[in-house]
Simulated assay, not measured.
Amino acid sequence: MAPEAPRRRPRLVDRSPSITGAEIVAELVPPPQFEHASFDSYRPDLDFPSQLEAVERLSAFAGAWMPQRPSGFFSRTRKPKPELPGIYLDGGFGVGKTHLLAALWHATPGPKYFGTFIEYTALVGALGYAATVKQLSGARLICIDEFELDDPGDTMLMTRLLGELVASGTRVAATSNTPPNSLGEGRFAAIDFLREIQAMSANFEIVRIDGLDYRRRDIEGHAIAVSAEVLDHLVGALVERGSTVTLDDFGALIRHLSTVHPSKYIKIINGIDVIALTDAYLLTDQTDALRLVAFIDRVYDAEIPVIANGQPLNEVFDDEMLSGGYRKKYQRSQSRLVALTTGELPPHD
Rank of each mutant, 00 (worst) to 15 (best):
M66G: 05
P70V: 00
A37V: 10
W65P: 08
S75E: 08
D45G: 03
L46C: 08
W65V: 02
S75C: 10
S71R: 10
L52P: 00
E83I: 06
F48A: 03
S38K: 07
R43C: 12
G63C: 04
P85V: 01
S75Y: 03
V55D: 03
D40C: 01
E53W: 12
E56P: 07
R76E: 14
K79M: 08
S38Y: 04
V55F: 06
P67N: 02
A62R: 00
L52T: 07
D40W: 00
P70W: 00
T77P: 07
S41H: 08
S75I: 03
T77N: 14
R76K: 15
R76D: 11
R69N: 15
S38Q: 09
R43V: 14
A64V: 11
W65Q: 05
D45K: 05
L84T: 14
L46T: 12
Q51A: 05
L84K: 15
F74C: 13
A62W: 00
Q51M: 08
Q51W: 03
R43Q: 14
K79V: 02
G72M: 06
R69Q: 14
A54K: 01
P49E: 06
P80W: 01
H36T: 07
P85E: 02
Q68Y: 11
M66F: 09
S38A: 15
F73T: 04
F61K: 01
W65C: 07
E56T: 09
W65I: 02
K81C: 13
E56G: 12
S59F: 04
F73M: 10
E53L: 12
D40H: 01
H36P: 00
A62G: 07
A62N: 01
F48V: 04
S75Q: 12
G72Q: 09
P44F: 05
A54N: 03
E83A: 13
L52G: 08
Q68R: 14
A60F: 11
A62C: 09
R69W: 05
D40G: 02
D45H: 07
E56D: 13
L58D: 01
G72W: 03
E56F: 09
S71E: 11
P44V: 06
Q51K: 05
A62I: 01
Q68V: 05
L46V: 11
K81T: 15
P82L: 12
P49L: 06
R76A: 13
V55L: 11
R78H: 14
K81Q: 15
P44G: 10
Y42I: 07
Y42L: 10
Y42N: 06
R57W: 02
A60C: 14
